[in-house]
Design a protein around this nucleic acid. Structure first.
Length: 518
RNA sequence: GCGGGAGUAGCUCAGUGGUAGAGCGCGACCUUGCCAAGGUCGAAGUCGCGGGUUCAAAUCCCGUCUCCCGCUCCA
């Protein structure tokens, strides 16, 4: 059922020009998507709404648009260079994949007991292990006895098996090289000079890294670090006082271990992040403030506010630098999942960058002659996730009666008018009697006011209504015979399908009014 | 990355070795004129890609890419 919903949304996205797979004619590129003519409008509307509410409508938040490639030492300081490579291991018995550092610790030589969900599985695994490992085990119900832990010092968290694959490093940041000369040239020279002969795999790797390091740069895995790195510049150039925030929207890149759920988790994604700098001691209040403000913001544009919830992080779940954290989760078709994280990052980032850069990153409060390193509350939202959430939220099917006495399914996107790609469709009832000409004049009035309107005369009127329902156009204005004589037109509501007459001269003002109300 | 499923027209899918199909959608025209109406005609497919088996492959085999589900990670 819910998987059906996801399929329908994905299909509609392609059919109606919201989201296409990247490089599709070349077979597609894994986890890369392009936003089509309607998708780009939806995404921009969402991001502009965020910017408007987070920056323009507040005195205490300013914007930033930093470069995607920053000094590589930024990522040393932030911990991303180290922390983004977690050793992962596969269980050779049950095929579970897990993080080595989070697996149950068991000293070498200790008895390792394997356990499985039922006897059938246990029996099958028993035979498989004895065949593969040439080792006799004893089966007691769902458990297998007689194995011992290896030198690795841990066992599979799922079944308890000591038979594990090699630890594999996953480099989650996208690496590139800065400069017009190819760093592989240096590697080639080193090989020619014989400098790489006789090295072990590990030594060779570190040597190659050393050779390529001078030109190595990374695509940012999050937009946040730029706000810390530019903290001092913003503070000084804007004459702004704490508490204040720096907001930024933009692309980030992560080599995720697994990408999934359409645009939910992709290697290239778009974020809307804000770092709110406050005095230590006020951080708990600000975390409470921002988590409420942020979930209210998401709910504002939704048809189903109950599908958003705040989930506090368990202490053991918290990132090492975070003092407290709330996720805003959405009830996706596959279950609850993250949409935004609001974290109390303490002074961790500013301290780190101060130390690594040798620059003081603190704040002097002139009112009480106090100097301190601010704490940071970070509401970090996924913009591309937001697009997906509102598409799912908006997708609606309803049974409607036809004039022929049958019923049929009407598909509509109940997008919030401020998010809808096209705000208003202007339709001549027929292609005759000067209706198209008058309708075009009406569209021009919307163009002049910068409202995305669409003239449409193709097919019968009912079909045009339905097509605009499907792309979420909230209002349709129809020029009919009366329009020609009395200067009025009908305005049709997407959700109720109800119509009323308004004056043509007042149409633009009316849509602007509805857009503000909506 | 590992395990499972899938890829045929824009979309949804049928087609299991013998001339690539349907519905919807799309385009033109006729008719109608306020909720996917009817009619006529039409365009559209590297059957994901590459290789192999075969007289013959969408169909069988191998490889590969992509998508979906699970594990894991995160905005």
């Amino acid at each position: 059922m819910s998987q059906e919903l996801m399929k329908k949304v994905v299909s509609l996205c392609k059919r109606r020009g919201f989201v296409y797979q990247s490089s599709e004619i070349y077979g597609g590129l894994k986890s890369a998507y392009d936003y089509g003519p309607l998708g780009v409008e939806l995404k921009r509307n969402l991001m502009n709404a965020w910017w408007r509410d987070m920056v323009h409508r507040r005195e205490d938040v300013v914007g930033l648009d930093a470069s995607i490639i920053m000094h590589p030492r930024v990522w040393e300081a932030s911990g991303h260079l180290a922390g983004f490579s977690d050793p992962l291991v596969d269980c050779l018995v049950c095929k579970e994949r897990f993080r080595a550092d989070k697996a149950p610790q068991l000293a070498a030589g200790q008895p390792a007991v394997l356990s499985f969900p039922d006897k059938g599985v246990a029996k099958r695994m028993h035979e498989q292990i004895e065949k593969q490992q040439e080792l006799a085990l004893e089966r007691k119900g769902t458990e297998l006895h007689g194995a011992t832990a290896g030198d690795r010092g841990y066992v599979c968290p799922n079944c308890g098996s000591p038979w594990l694959s090699e630890e594999r490093q996953f480099n989650l940041m996208f690496k590139s090289s800065l400069g017009a000369t190819d760093p592989l040239g240096d590697v080639a020279s080193a090989i020619e000079a014989g400098g790489l002969e006789g090295l072990s795999g590990r030594e060779l790797r570190s040597k190659l890294e050393e050779l390529t390091k001078p030109s190595a740069v990374y695509l940012r895995p999050e937009t946040a670090q730029a706000m810390f790195v530019q903290f001092q510049n913003v503070l000084q150039s804007m004459a702004i006082k704490i508490p204040f925030g720096i907001a930024q929207m933009g692309k980030s890149f992560r080599n995720e271990i697994t990408v999934e759920h359409f645009i939910f988790r992709s290697t290239e994604f778009e974020q809307m992040e804000m770092e709110f700098f406050c005095e230590p001691g006020t951080d708990d209040e600000w975390l409470a403030y921002w988590k409420e403000a942020r979930i209210a913001w998401w709910r504002k544009f939704s048809n189903d506010p109950d599908k958003f919830k705040l989930r506090p992080h368990e202490p053991e779940e918290l990132a090492h630098y975070a003092k407290g954290c709330f996720d805003i989760e959405y009830d996706y078709p596959w279950g609850w999942g993250e949409l935004e994280g609001i974290a109390n990052r303490t002074d961790y980032d500013l301290q780190k960058h101060a130390k690594h850069s040798g620059t003081k990153l603190d704040y002097f409060d002139p009112t009480d002659n106090k100097r301190f390193v601010p704490y940071v509350i970070e509401p970090a939202a996924g913009a591309t996730r937001g697009v997906l959430v509102y598409l799912i939220d908006a997708y609606t099917e309803e049974e409607v009666a036809t004039p022929r006495g049958t019923t049929e399914t009407r598909v509509l996107l109940k997008l919030h008018p401020q998010l809808a790609p096209i705000k208003v469709a202007v339709l001549p009832l027929t292609k005759k009697d000067g209706m198209p000409e008058l309708a075009r004049q009406v569209v021009d009035r919307f163009f002049e006011r910068g409202i995305n309107a669409k003239y449409d005369e193709q097919h019968a009127i009912g079909k045009r209504y339905r097509r605009h329902d499907e792309i979420g156009t909230p209002w349709a204005l129809t020029i009919d015979h009366e329009s020609l004589s009395d200067g009025t037109l009908t305005i049709r509501d997407r959700d109720t399908m109800e119509q009323r007459r308004i004056s043509i001269d007042g149409a633009v003002d009316e849509i602007e009014r509805l857009l503000r109300v909506g």
